[in-house]
Design a protein around this nucleic acid. Sequence first.
RNA 1: GUCCCCAUCGUCUAGCCUGGUCUAGGACAAGAGCUUUUCAAGCUCUCGACACCGGUUCAAAUCCGGUUGGGGACACCA
Length: 433
Amino acid sequence: MIRVRFAPSPTGNLHIGGARTALFNWLYARAKSGEFILRIEDTDKLRSRQEYVDEILGSLKWLGFEWNEVYYQSQRLKRYQECAEKLLAQGKAYKEKSPEKGEAVIFKVMPQNIRINDLIRGEIVFDSKAIKDQVLIKSDGTATYNFACVVDDADMNISHVIRGDDHISNTPKQVLLYEALGLPLPVFAHLPLILGAEGGRLSKRTGATAISDYRRMGYLPQALVNYLLLLSWAPGEDREVMDIQEAIKLFDIKDVNKTAAAFDMHKLNWINSQYIKEEDPQKITDIVIPLLIERKYIDKDNFDRNYVFSLVKLFQGRLNTLAEFAEWADFFFTEDPVMDPEAEEKFLAKDLSREFSLFSERLASLHVFEVSTIEESFRQLVKELGIETRALIHPLRVALTGKTIGPGLFEVVYYLGRERTEKRLRRWIKGRS
RNA sequence: GUCCCCAUCGUCUAGCCUGGUCUAGGACAAGAGCUUUUCAAGCUCUCGACACCGGUUCAAAUCCGGUUGGGGACACCA
């Protein structure tokens, strides 16, 4: 039975790198009908925080990575001490007293070559000369990372340790501990790191950090997972946008690349836009409503869901993120549109009182107010005035929305409604009432 | 500094294992065009890479060595 684990430490939020490690573990378990175990590595009492545990668990759930079991290292201290005692008794470890800190248990590293067989990288050989004696139990009685990790992976029957590249140099230390404790070795697979856009470490500057931030920015979890999937792995046949079930069929940890990949926000945005286009507009409405409430565009207890739904359909094809919806559709929710000064200068500097009031009158006299009849009357008007369509359509859009970009004008008029349209036009009509 | 990992378009990658089918394929980005009611979408096209040097071989992106470059690790953090 394949058993893999994801072992975050709750000293920060779940970030892109961690999410990718979780994804590959979870995916491998699913692909091989194995089990995915979650282990919270909270041995550092000072830096671990409950709020981070909550954030990490929440983000994993949001991404869709359900786990079979969950463990907390803080609850297993006795077990680590027990194993340390065993090594002490066998003379493989010793105690060291330091006046400031107290007594620690330290593992004796014997000179030897250590070879590990990595599923992704093949054989790697280390000389233990470069490895110092390792602290197993700190003087506060808690276990160090490398020790707790080995004891846990063995106790939890982890068959494959899939983790980031940055753990390669921990591996020989851990192998030594497995051997000293007489425990069977798991298979190791070290994933290449994810780099920031400029090639360096992933940071706030090079691409936001926490997964919960991506959620807030209006990324769909399926899209984020799909993008992460494509970093250091390719399904072949030039496939890119693919649902997770398809990925489960095609994925194998052996096919993961060795090369680090840079995180590219552009491509994430593109994939997200593809998913937004395909997603059920009802679901998008569900996601977008809290964003609108947050901006006070709608009232939490009293809003027209159907209206929001219609607008979602209007914008769905042109969004990179759902946060953009709140940004671009703002004029549907406010009393007056926020004017873009440049757009105003360009399209509304000229006096269009006559044209605007004529259009306003035509709208008022419409028996049936719908997109097609609005368009008909507009085209008729333009014809009568003998002007170009665009000469009137752009100023109208700016007057109604404050922007030069957005959905089709007739849809805008329709969903704005007769009253609000007329009110917004009136502002630009001089000397008439 | 020591140890380890890595190296194909700006970015993600296919190809590498099992040399010839590679004047290196796809996607994102960028640029141009079509369409058009703006923006976007969509469609078409363009730009653009085997890090370098040497070796093996009839033949190297592919195998070997070195150089350079990038990344990571060297805690009583995880």
